[in-house]
Design a protein around this nucleic acid. Structure first.
Lengths: 312, 312
DNA sequence: ATAGCTGTTGCCGAAACGGCAGCAACATGT
DNA sequence: ACATGTTGCTGCCGTTTCGGCAACAGCTAT
């Protein structure tokens, strides 16, 4: 089912690989064929689409416009194909998810497991990365659904849902703070602290609050892995900070205690956004999973914010 | 700039014309070429796209799915083209509007005139039709922007805005009702009435209210032209019903009086919706006009509802 | 029956596509 | 400095695809 001109597909491959010869290898054609199709495209558009450097090709402004169009075409072709396939037979296809680390402990595996048991011919591709990388992956068409800390998102992405979870401190059961109901940042900083590195979005959530304090003590440990920070906290090394989303298993084992954070009497929120390319209609099975994801995250938001009611 | 496979364009032409030979005439190619491309498409999709009748072709279910995809592709190609063109030079292109009759007296001509004075190379195509025909024209890709009475709209259309205007009675200056501030349906029905035929949406707005009344007198005149009904009312033939949108000129001449309608103590609203195909990104110049349209209609809504404040 | 319409199919020339080999330009490693 | 590997590009040429012409079968209306 290839009813689009080869130029479209070649252009797409060249954009992704950044090289004509590499694209030719992926496409299983001669590099000359790819080169000619690109030249033909540029002649028809009337403007160069790539800037030729000595090592590969980079999109020009016009090239980025065409890339956007081509992405719309190919993604919609995908949707059409899956629509036709779902006419006669069960759903099948791939759902590609780009998300931040906090989802990997419980939310995502739970959801994928239950979804797979219902629609077995839907496969998943999940990739964990930072929030800004999630948005970039979506823009480049490398992921269908993105979950990231809700920053300002570019206009070509659509925020399907926005769920807020309380940020909190994570301490071992034996930690002196463990008996409190809530903690403030000052109280935490009296102890050794496991800080997030700037590549984690927790850093950007906490940094402005820490900057407001008079004293800024040296952090004991800095890390860029949510998982590592959690394990360190469980071993009593220090106080870690994260949302309650990713600590289900460890707190079930009662090794860890989650203490919602209060700052000047009000909770500290971490906003989680679910994103999708705006100029795109999702295949039915992807849309279905997306709805489940939104519902599940909403359910967790409700449960967790009920467990730790907001201070007055 | 034709970088999509001919099959796409041929299919689109056949869908619109409903005939291979007619499509071939439009495309300036031999009918055999069109026939072969369609057959090739059907072979690649693996399912017939048209049902061959003795007089032309009709889309099958799969064909409609492909039509949707093809429409997305071609409309997005249009957007890409205008995006590239606007890089070097002024906006130019065509905006196709499908709307109901109430807009033709003042809203649309005013807007188009001011817009043309700013961007002279943007042309307009406007077509007046009934509300359901407006939605159908949008779905078939025959119009860019649609304005219609806000009924339930199909999911492949997006309601950009919803503005409500008061429905009222239109009477000549000398009419016995002309001195009132508002009127009820009963009061109007005491006089000869100019009724809308079912093809006008005013009919569907008033019919349920009339059905509630105990007596349903014979209407004096039935018509399917807003303009005709207005002129008839101006000549004192009877009471007409419409929104205040389309009576600017005549009421400026003080020949007509607009009396907002009250039903059981509350106003009767006529909801106007602005629609666009959902799976589509508009070209920049079309989006710009759309925003002006929404703003202008919102302005009128505010003004007119302020002129006739809501009863308590 | 005739005329007019429909979509489809051989046949054939023209245009487009793709593979092979070789080119110049540049980066890297010895 | 030289060799090697990379990049994109370009003649040459066989294959594939496309489109125009004419003819065909099927149907409708006159």
């Amino acid at each position: 089912m290839r009813f689009h001109s080869p130029a479209i597909q070649y252009f797409h491959a060249v954009r992704r690989t950044g090289s004509i010869r590499a694209a030719a290898r992926v496409l299983n054609v001669a590099s000359s064929a790819v080169s000619r199709q690109i030249l033909k495209l540029e002649q028809e558009v009337g403007s160069p689409l790539f800037e030729r450097t000595t090592r590969g090709l980079t999109l020009t402004t016009v090239g980025e416009m065409l890339a956007r169009h081509v992405m719309n075409v190919l993604q919609d072709l995908d949707r059409f194909r899956s629509d036709v396939a779902s006419l006669s037979g069960a759903w099948h296809g791939n759902i590609s998810i780009a998300c931040i680390e906090s989802l990997t402990e419980s939310v995502l595996p739970d959801l994928i497991a239950t979804h797979r048991s219902q629609a077995r011919r839907v496969s998943f591709t999940t990739e964990v990365m930072g929030s800004s990388a999630v948005l970039e992956a979506l823009r480049r068409g490398e992921a269908d659904i993105g979950i990231a800390i809700a920053l300002r998102h570019p206009p070509d992405l659509r925020q399907v849902a926005l769920k807020r979870f309380r940020l909190g401190a994570l301490v071992a059961r034996e930690h002196p703070l463990a008996r409190r109901k809530t903690v403030t940042l000052e109280q935490c900083l009296a102890f050794p602290v496991i800080h997030a590195l700037p590549e984690l979005s927790i850093y950007h959530l906490l940094q402005p609050l820490i900057a407001q304090l008079s004293e800024t003590p040296e952090p004991a440990i800095q890390a860029n892995s949510i998982d590592l920070m959690r394990e360190l906290a469980a071993r009593g090394v220090g106080v870690a900070f994260q949302t309650q989303l990713g600590i289900g298993r460890l707190s079930r084992d009662a090794q860890l205690v989650f203490l919602p954070l209060d700052n000047a009497g009000s909770p500290v929120w971490s906003d989680l956004g679910i994103y999708v390319r705006a100029e795109r209609t999702l295949p039915a099975f992807t849309e279905s999973f997306l709805q489940e994801l939104v519902r599940e995250l909403g359910e967790r938001e409700r449960r967790e914010n009920a467990a730790y009611p907001q201070v007055a």
